[in-house]
Design a binder for these strands. Structure first.
Lengths: 155, 155
DNA sequence: GCCATATGGTTTTATGATGCAACCACACAA
DNA sequence: TTGTGTGGTTGCATCATAAAACCATATGGC
């Protein structure tokens, strides 16, 4: 078998996320969905991707409960693709990708949009990772610990 | 030509990030690199991936200045792969992927590690997106604005 | 020095994934 | 009835990936 290796049973949560949205198009579909895109044709025209691939990705994300189909709001007989809470939970990942590009891209002048605070219209801050007590953490301030086994019922 | 569509010239910073690290393996390689892995063989054995693919990914990330090669620290005649600042800047993306899995995965009991604050050994908080004035922002509190054109020299 | 073995890759070959175009199904309008 | 637009599915060519074989360079024993 020469199939693409699956991360499905992997213990690493990063690998598990990539299993769901780590392909070439999924996050861009989510980006559009967060902007309010719902219809197949609208995804297809905005992203310029092949229709069969879009179809496969939408189906996969519905299977992963990132999207759900709804019976169409404008009366037409087709279905719409809406984000679930799990799908909206991808927002920080998109922000992190955006900010990495903004900070390190070799041609930042080609980036034409800014993410702003809707209330004030001012750019957002960089994503912050904090400790329980509120201290800002950088990479070196963190480490991985084995998770305590979930106790089954009582002790 | 039927090649995989490139996001290279895309104006969207998310697409630009995915162009560099949006493939199946790159982020897992970065994850290992953040843990201190430096050598080809070590990446290969820890990730269990094909050596040719690893070779191609390492080369690609060196091209993108995410990794850099160094002449080996332990005396052996081979080279090591070290993260650049741009590479270490991917850390928030990995944290975001991890936290999404922790929050929404269907089988969270399969996740065996926790990201903790090194100083206290306590789990970190969720990534926070804040406005300039410090307000916590959720998806709906944000929007995209066109970026003002970078002025060339004077006005 | 000479052979065995480990490390660090590259090459070869087979298959899965992707891209494009063509096709089908249905709704609606003329 | 025909035409048009939307929402897909199917076929086929090409690309990317996986697995294994292969090669080059150390390193170690003798």
């Amino acid at each position: 078998m020469v199939k693409r290796t699956s991360f499905e049973g992997d213990a690493c949560p990063i690998a598990r996320s990539l299993e769901a949205i780590g392909d070439w198009w999924s996050l861009l579909i989510i980006r559009e969905a967060l902007f309010g895109v719902r219809r197949f044709g609208e995804f297809q025209s905005k992203l310029g991707m092949a229709k069969n691939i879009l179809s496969a990705r939408l189906r996969s994300m519905v299977d992963h409960r990132i999207l759900e189909t709804a019976p169409a709001s404008d009366g037409s007989a087709y279905s719409e693709y809406l984000l679930t809470p799990k799908g909206r939970g991808l927002f920080p990942i998109l922000v992190a990708l955006r900010q990495w590009s903004e900070e390190f891209d070799d041609h930042p002048e080609q980036i034409t949009t800014i993410l702003v605070d809707r209330a004030k219209g001012r750019p957002v801050r960089k994503l912050e990772l904090r400790a329980e007590d509120g201290r800002l953490l950088s990479t070196d301030d963190t480490m991985l610990k084995p998770r305590p086994a979930p106790r089954r019922r009582s002790a």
